[in-house]
Structure formats: C-alpha cells, structure tokens
Write a protein that binds this DNA or RNA. Structure first.
Lengths: 196, 196
DNA sequence: GTCTATACGACGATAGAC
DNA sequence: GTCTATCGTCGTATAGAC
C-alpha cells in the first residue's frame, strides 16, 4: 500500500525554492529577481519551479501566505498563554523583536516588501489577520480598563507603532545596540502613552 | 542679449514628466511603470524624456531629491518658527498630516516606495536629512528638560512612530475618520510617552 | 518530477530627422 | 528640444525529452 513513489524530494523541493526566494526577494527585491536567479540559488531547474508554482507571482504568494499563517499561529499562542493586554503586548513585542534578530529575512519580507506591487489582489498587510489580532488585544485591554478609552486605531498605533519603527530602524542599520536591548525602554514608553 | 531661444516650454516639460511619473510610480510602482507609460501620461515623447534625464532611474532620482529638499525646507521653517520641542513636534505632525491629505502622492512616494530597490545607491530614507532633523528636535527637547532622558532613537520612534503609522494606516484605508481629525489624540498619546 | 532548449513579448535605450 | 522608428536584451513562460 505504501507507495513511496519515486525520487529524492518529498515536499523538499518546494521548501528549497521558497527559502532561496525569500533570500533573493529580501536581498534585491521581487522585481530585481528573475526566475533564473531563483533556479540557480535554489539548485533547481526553471522547469521544476514552474511545475510547483503557477508562475513567479505564485511563488511570492506562497511565501506571503506562509508568513501570515505563521504569524497567526504565534499570536494565537500568545492569546492562549497570556490574559492581560499588558502581558500580551509585552509578548508580542518580544516575538517581533526575536523574529527580527533570528530570522531577519522573514521580518524584512513582512514589513519592508511592497506586497501590493507584485501581489495586486492582496490587501495591505495591516489589514491582515495578524494585525487584526493585535488590535483585538488592544480592544480587550480597553474594556478591561487597563487602557484608556480612546480610538482603537490611535491606541494600536501608539502601542505597536514605536516598536515597529524600532524594527525598521534596526533593519536600516540605525541602531547602535542590539534591537532586543531596547525592549524595556520602548515597552515602558508606549505603555505610558495609553495606560489609564 | 536675451535669447528667449525657441519653442514652448522653459522648464515646463521636466515638470510635466515628473508630475506624471509621481502619479504612475505611486499608483502602480516603479517596476510596473514603463518609460512608455511615462511618455503617454505626460504627453511627451520618449525622446524628450531621455533628453532631460539620463535614464529611467534618473527620473526617479530627480523625484526623490525634490522630495527630500522640500521636506528639508519645510522642517527648517518649523525650526525657525518654533522654539520648544513641544511646539516643534506638533508642527511636524501637522505638516505630515497636511501633506498626506493634500498631496497624498508625495507622502506615498516618501513613506511607501522602496527607494533602495530602484535607487541602489541611496541610503534608507530614515537616514536622510529630514529624519535627522526630526531627531535633532527630540535631542534638544531632552537637553532642555522637556523630554525624559532616554535613548534618542527610542524617544524619536515613540514620538513620531505613532503619527507615521497613522499616516500609513490612512493610506491603507483603515481609518474611519479623516486623518487630521486624529491629530489631538495622537499628539497627546505620544507626548505622554516621553514627557518628563 | 526534473530537466534543457526555445519561443515570444516587453522594455530600456539610441539614432537621427526635424 | 522634440519627435518617430528601431535595435538589442532580458525575462517569463512553455514544450517536450527523460
């Protein structure tokens, strides 16, 4: 019954392609990356790429969806493990900083790519589920009284905006120390901005 | 002596080209815009474009430099007209919001374009002079005692990060009310975050 | 599923007349 | 300074053998 069908790679080729693509897209951008580049870097032929993905845009879309799903999973985990807005926010910032330091390409692709330029039908990333979930955390903090009553968008941008801009600053090489060394300062600041 | 040389446009053609280019770049991105598109949209022939600019990248660079210079001028004006960090920051946020509402394409090109993808030798926009000047305002606020002693980058991102993320949210269509209607709320929040 | 070779179109850029 | 016509290149995508 077991049909260990044939050759080498189970779902491995896809992973190779996606990994190489992530590097290339973050390094030089979607439009500066040709399918030939992807083939060379992933040690796979052009034909294979077009076998696994509909087209170049399809590769980008797969990358994008993986990323969103992963963030979703991580945030769901945070929601489960922490109950207050206070703790959740700390956990979210820690998560974002940790991804930035350990897998910078992921974060770069998430925050830096202009997805809509190459995925025309995608909504802006801030409308995506993970960002939605972050706003939900803020909302619950407001009803529980931890956070001042105020416009939800304002509160969210104040709470997470600083951290996110620290991340982009870090990726731009503007920071003197490591990103994670700033976490306490930034956390205190943004908490002051919105706490009751 | 006066050689009012010839035809129609003094420096007008350039302006036409740049204006059309700004629209196209913000609407569909640098890479999705061909020089043919620019020619059609600006009512100018391809030949003229290449006469006035070295190449496609040259057009983008001119646009970018204009923008940086303009921001520089506006911030210098603010520096002249206001003396406290408190007032300067208010003026900066008002300026940014006003540009966003009145000339959204300018702001979109400034905050949304991935300049480094098509201007390879340009430094990230956050390293540019205007952003430098904004950080300078924060620094002076710290030495004058208006702002808590803390890391300069943290203070700057907290002060302006929220406003900037409100702008991108506005451009993404996430805001229910007009951007300018949020100004007081956002200003109060970020001031709480850093004031002594 | 993986590969090589190739078709085809689009785009950046130039030449050269006016 | 402005135009049209054209060239060469490069990149996406396909065909078809293995």
């Amino acid at each position: 019954m077991s049909h260990v069908t044939n050759k080498k790679s189970p779902g491995n080729t896809q992973a190779q392609i996606l990994s190489a693509t992530l590097s290339l897209f973050t390094g030089q951008g979607y439009f500066n990356t040709s399918v030939h580049d992807i083939a060379r870097e992933s040690q796979v032929s052009i034909g294979s790429i077009y076998h696994h993905f509909k087209d170049k845009e399809g590769v980008a879309r797969a990358l994008y969806n993986d990323m969103i799903e992963r963030m979703n999973a991580e945030l769901t985990e945070i929601k489960k493990n922490h109950s207050t807005a206070h703790d959740r926010r700390r956990a979210v910032i820690e998560l974002l900083f940790s991804i930035t330091e350990q897998e910078p390409e992921i974060m770069e692709f998430m925050l830096y790519s202009k997805h809509r330029e190459f995925l025309p039908n995608e909504r802006p990333i801030c409308s995506s589920k993970p960002f939605d979930m972050m706003r939900e955390f803020v909302k619950e903090g407001m009803t529980s009284g931890e956070i001042r009553e105020m416009d939800l968008m304002v509160a969210s941008t104040c709470l997470f905006g600083g951290a996110i801009r620290m991340i982009t600053s870090s990726m731009d090489g503007l920071l003197k120390r490591s990103l994670s060394s700033y976490i306490d300062e930034i956390w205190i600041c943004s908490w002051k901005a919105v706490s009751t």
